[in-house]
């Protein structure tokens, strides 16, 4: 069919097998699972950006005392409701000017603030620095979210593992409880708990955790059911390894992706509940600031001083968006099939 090309005769010698095996080892280097996950996550620009944004927010919250320009609870009633002013820069919206009866007035001059006094995001009705309150408020909201999520994990993971691992009657009983808890809208459970417990940080955390664990427990149970039947777990059982050892050595590592991803969806949920409770007035008590209380205060003055609500609203939404998107990115990174 084709012309036979001219080829020197010595090329037609049989190769021995060793040569073959050597050439076979050529291939692309393989990545471990975690390396692969990391590579996929960082190749996702959106997720990486969210990670950076969240990292910054967390850093600022941790170092709040150093970063915040003022004491967040220090009142200076004579400086109340000052508009944002960023140094002497004349940026519209950040120049300390306020519309009063149709005229632009320098609000800082009006209250007789000495030169050099400025509040980047303005002050609230008690003359407290809004930027400092937002930094501290974010810190408090994050603390609530992280602690609530931790409690969530501490209840949800063991509950799910026990339910899935034991199966049978234990499982049926535990699932009934889950069913009942999830039949009451989360928020109502949280509100009931908030009414019974004294308002405060601990109560909020307990209240949020009490409802949040259900989803985690469900997911972990379903996964445990699957893992239980895996060969390597069966092997470990046959070899007589103790249940706790199997759980820590075989189950938790394989559940980790589920746990991490679910955590990324629990955190915004907890932030939302805190904000919600504080917004309706049964959350973090005054004078401490959280994103919820700031929104609540901001809403009262929103019609005339919109910046007081915009700032916390943007931060809250930013955290929620970033955690949601990061959660998506992590899910795609852990389970590439889910996205493609």
């Amino acid at each position: 069919m084709e012309q036979v090309p001219k080829i020197p005769k010595e090329k037609f010698k049989l190769l021995n097998k060793q040569d073959n095996e050597a050439s076979e080892s050529l291939g692309t280097p393989s990545l471990t699972y975690l390396q692969d996950v990391r590579r996929r996550l960082f190749s996702n620009k959106v997720a990486t950006a969210c990670l950076i944004i969240l990292g910054l927010i967390v850093l600022i919250s941790i170092f709040a005392p150093a970063v915040a320009p003022h004491n967040p609870n220090a009142q200076k009633v004579e400086y109340s409701n000052l508009p944002p002013k960023l140094g002497n820069l004349n940026i519209p919206g950040f120049n300390g000017m306020q519309d009063m009866g149709g005229k632009e007035v320098d609000a800082y001059k009006q209250v007789g603030a000495p030169k050099g006094t400025y509040y980047i995001l303005g002050t609230d009705y008690l003359g407290r620095d809004l930027l400092s309150r937002i930094i501290y408020g974010t810190r408090l909201s994050l603390i609530v979210a992280v602690l609530a999520t931790l409690v969530d994990l501490l209840i949800g993971i063991p509950y799910g593992i026990v339910s899935g691992w034991k199966g049978g009657r234990v499982d049926t009983f535990l699932q009934r409880i889950v069913e009942i808890v999830s039949s009451i809208p989360n928020l109502i459970v949280v509100i009931l708990m908030m009414i019974i417990l004294k308002p405060g940080l601990t109560s909020i955390i307990i209240a949020i955790a009490l409802t949040g664990w259900v989803t985690m427990a469900r997911l972990i149970r379903a996964q445990t059911f699957q893992l239980k039947e895996q060969e390597y777990v069966l092997a470990a059982r046959t070899l007589g390894e103790s249940s706790t050892k199997i759980a820590s050595k075989h189950l938790i590592p394989n559940l980790s992706s589920t746990i991490i991803i679910q955590t990324m969806f629990t955190i915004p949920n907890a932030i939302f509940f805190e904000a919600f409770l504080s917004f309706i007035g049964i959350g973090i008590p005054a004078p401490n600031a959280s994103l919820g209380t700031l929104l609540s205060d901001g809403q009262k003055a929103f019609r005339f001083l919109p910046y007081q609500m915009w700032a916390p609203a943007i931060i809250l939404s930013l955290i929620m968006i970033a955690t949601n998107l990061l959660g998506d990115g992590l899910r795609d990174a852990f389970d590439p099939q889910s996205s493609d």
Binding site: P5, I7, F12, K13, L14, L15, N20, E21, S23, E24
Partner: peptide
Amino acid sequence: APRNAYALQIDTEQ
């Protein structure tokens, strides 16, 4: 060629 017990020198080149 790499899996071929009857591979020739030329197999690896062309």
